[in-house]
Amino acid sequence: MSGASFHNAPPLLPRDKASLAAPPAHPRHQKTGTRGPIHRIRWSVLPALGRYASPVILVLLWQAACSTGLISTRLFASPLQILATGWGLAQDGTLQANLGVSLLRAASGLALALATGISLALIAALSRIGENVIDAPIQILRTLPVLALAPLFILWFGIGELPKVLLVALGATFPVYLNLHKGIRAIDPKLLEMAHTIGLSRWQRIRNVILPGALPDLLVGTRLAVSIAWLMLVVAEQINASSGIGHMMMDAQDFLRTDIIFVGLAIYGLLGLISDQGVRILERRALVWRQPSAQGRGQNHD
């Protein structure tokens, strides 16, 4: 339909540079279509195998060292032992229960951090008073190592869930705030001028120009916040907890169960990896407008 309407356009409205420049775009696409796979096989699959070969060999050596008694399995559980223990913990439900508790803490802390960080950044970046009141204290606070606040948090908030969630939230708030604040400040003033000339209200400007414009920075902040959230959680759960992956690991320490400690480490590692990938996928979806190649949505150049 759109094609037809274009052809109906009066000849007074000739095609411009884009229409003329469009045809070369096709050969370019074809090129990536036909030559891409060969390139990929030659240059990305083989090195990828190479990259994974080294860790695999290391794990094999580790197993061999344990099996031959070169390493004491009491201090350094073997990979097979760790797998078996992980399987056992999953079978009796210990792993799921502790994982659930840890996930809930991380998620609540992160949600709190996002809400706080976004609100504070909006206030600080959009009003002069907000900037003066909010930005200076945050810049001072962020130089403190947040983990050092753990003892204080236990005194203030007891030993329940609250101090753990708050510790996660506090650590994760800073990257959200700092990146969003920077992102809002970096928005092209020309776009804000344009928004003014088309009569957008303050709220409409925030919704249509400021937030989407700062979204790339907010997502960078979120990714940092996610990794910090896990870090804070590890510490919070090891200092004082009766459940959670960290608690499971501290318990294992008392019984010299290095295999369980390694299972906990692996879980933390996986959680970090998965959540980071999650934010990356979110980034690709939300910022599709930044990738000119991903134009999708039915256009025709001709």
């Binding site: 274009f6 000739p14 134009q295 256009q299």
Partner: peptide, 13 residues
């Protein structure tokens, strides 16, 4: 303005 065929495009394209 002769741009109906590009109405779903992203501006950067």
């Amino acid at each position: 303005v002769g741009l109906a065929h590009r109405q779903d495009a992203w501006p950067l394209t």
